[in-house]
């Protein structure tokens, strides 16, 4: 056993040793899993000779937790807008050097100067998406236009929603006509009875793959990510996606460079590469989210642009999530409490 300890120690030292040597041309990327196609990474490496270490996470919160607990040495991170906002505020991001970037003009005007980064000084939008209602129109024939139509007694036990407290509370705030970023104890208290009436109608909560239950036919309606709706629509046109008439918001996943990034030059090169229309198109081909890159959108097929999950038609002014700080705990408490009382 002592031998094995020695071996481990030797291993540790060996690993620690080689880590510092191979520093020359690498990019440590910390991004969502299944969000950056392998072809894009390969293309970047082929062109620049920079090797990409792609480390993945599967939610913005997961990313933040690892970042805060000590995950260091990342050159590019890919936070959602509201997490980027607080990272900027806390001085955790490196200001972008626009001289080293090209293709910033490709970003559509509506995705510039957004509230999380009003000067576009730290972040570049990567992909965006909405959250809305998807309906299996073969099973549900009455029109569904918003939350009021979704959460109706006749739909009880036929609804899937994302397992995300903030999205659910926001749905309630929209229905009540309250500001979605005003997470105050009063607003939470106002949302509670409405949510309490909704929860027993919900068949399941699933953030990772709400499409599964819809495709299986175990549920007929959903409050889901636009990307999920886009995949469903691709599979079968009976799945129609709309943005709720009470109000809707988009989320923007951005790329940014941490303040302590070891390879900022490689990071800038990578962002420029992602901004190229033909590269950005590759991303859209594989992952049907809303592409903020106007030049890339011109390269997409009509079918891609017609997908309501990716490019919903709406007259609504779309909100974005802001950093709500400690109020996140209020939401978590409310949702845990409601689930606890409405469940078995």
């Amino acid at each position: 056993m002592k031998k094995s300890c020695c071996l481990i120690l030797a291993g540790v030292l060996a690993l620690a040793g080689c880590k510092s040597k191979e520093d020359a041309k690498v990019l440590n990327l910390f991004a969502w899993s299944e969000y950056i196609p392998q072809t894009v990474l390969d293309g970047f490496t082929a062109e620049t000779g920079i090797k990409v270490n792609y480390e993945t996470f599967s939610s913005g919160e997961e990313m933040l937790a690892k970042l805060l607990a000590g995950g260091v040495g990342y050159d590019i991170i890919q936070p959602p807008d509201y997490i980027a906002e607080v990272l900027i505020k806390e001085g955790e991001l490196l200001p972008l050097d626009t001289a080293k970037l090209s293709g910033l003009d490709n970003i559509l005007p509506e995705f510039r100067g957004m509230p999380h980064d009003p000067q576009d000084a730290y972040t570049v939008p990567y992909m965006t998406g909405s959250v809305g209602i998807v309906v299996n129109t073969e099973r549900v024939t009455t029109p569904v236009k918003g939350f009021k139509d979704l959460f109706k007694p006749e739909h009880s036990g036929r609804i899937v929603v994302v397992d995300d407290g903030r999205e659910l509370v926001v749905a309630a705030l929209y229905t009540l006509g309250l500001g979605i970023n005003d997470i105050t104890p009063e607003n939470i208290a106002a949302a509670r009875p409405l949510l309490a009436s909704w929860f027993p109608m919900i068949k399941l909560f699933d953030s990772d793959s709400p499409k599964t239950a819809l495709l299986n036919g175990d549920v007929d309606l959903g409050y889901v990510w636009g990307g999920e709706a886009a995949i469903l629509w691709d599979e079968d046109k009976k799945f129609q996606y709309i943005l709720p008439e009470e109000g809707a918001h988009i989320f923007v996943d951005v790329v940014a460079i941490p303040a302590k990034a070891p390879h900022p030059d490689a990071a800038h090169a990578f962002i420029s590469y992602l901004l190229r229309p033909e590269v950005s198109k590759l991303i859209s081909d594989e992952f049907p989210y809303t592409n903020p890159n106007g030049a890339a959108r011109k390269l997409l097929t009509e079918d891609q642009l017609a997908n309501p999950g990716s490019y919903p038609k709406t007259e609504l002014a779309l909100d974005t999530f802001r950093h709500i700080g400690e109020s996140g705990a209020l939401i978590d408490e409310l949702v845990t409490d409601l689930k606890n009382t409405s469940g078995q």
């Binding site: 939610s59 919160e61 997961e62 933040l64 937790a65 397992d163 995300d164 407290g165 903030r166 919900i202 068949k203 399941l204 909560f205 699933d206 400690e326 996140g328 705990a329 939401i331 978590d332 408490e333 845990t336 689930k339 606890n340 409405s342 469940g343 078995q344």
Partner: peptide, 27 residues
């Protein structure tokens, strides 16, 4: 979560949520 539809919270969910969604590590 997967087979029960995440309708009822378990102690594991509650603890995990503090580190992810609620961002309240001390709790």
């Amino acid at each position: 979560d997967l087979m029960g539809g995440a309708r009822v919270p378990m102690i594991g969910n509650v603890i995990q949520n503090q580190f992810f969604k609620a961002r309240n590590w001390p709790f």
